[in-house]
């Protein structure tokens, strides 16, 4: 869990939730079915090519737009190991933590030097990411957030700690 290795898929700035998971599929509730539409609005071949542990690299404001948690569920169940972006939209970020999807904010990430198909290695505990021969450092996730992600999301944490998990 601490180290995530996979192929990289690069996306631009302002990737909104309609691109991550189009609104016309919002009536679906089965997670495996939801996974088949991952990133459909931005890259229709994504869901069929992504492999477990693969890493999304994006620019600013990833996950902007609607509050749909489907946008996180689709990525997690499609096998995405982590999303690394220069910044995230707030609701998407909360949803990702709650669902146990690794999201890492790297404000100085130079996405131009990373290409789709490159191999990436992410260490969420030490706070570094290596791709295409370059390593960037970021502030590691806080202990509380790590504990949620490592538990596999709020659900597992709740089962472990009950109402206390919410303070």
């Amino acid at each position: 869990m601490d180290i995530i290795k996979g192929n990289i898929f690069v996306f631009g700035n302002n990737i909104d939730t309609d691109q991550i998971y189009p609104g016309r599929y919002l009536d679906l509730t089965d997670h495996d079915e939801i996974a088949t539409h991952a990133m459909e609005g931005a890259d229709p071949s994504f869901a069929s090519t992504v492999k477990p542990g693969d890493i999304i690299v994006a620019g600013t404001n990833f996950g902007c737009g609607s509050s749909r948690e489907h946008a996180v569920i689709t990525l997690k169940n499609a096998g995405v190991g982590a999303v690394i972006a220069r910044s995230f939209a707030r609701i998407f970020f909360r949803n990702a933590i709650n669902q146990g999807l690794v999201v890492v904010e790297v404000p100085n990430l130079d996405t131009l030097n990373i290409n789709t198909g490159d191999k990436g290695i992410l260490d969420i505990v030490k706070g570094n990411f290596t791709a295409n021969g370059q390593t960037v450092f970021f502030q590691p996730l806080t202990e509380h957030v790590l504990s949620i992600i490592e538990a596999g999301g709020i659900f597992s944490l709740f089962r472990e700690k009950g109402v206390k998990a919410f303070g």
Partner: peptide
């Protein structure tokens, strides 16, 4: 403010959110 489904489920159970 808007939230996703997990945060909302927590509110329904506890009446609170961080």
């Amino acid at each position: 403010t808007g939230v996703g489904v997990t945060d909302m489920a927590v509110i329904l159970i506890t009446g609170k959110l961080w």
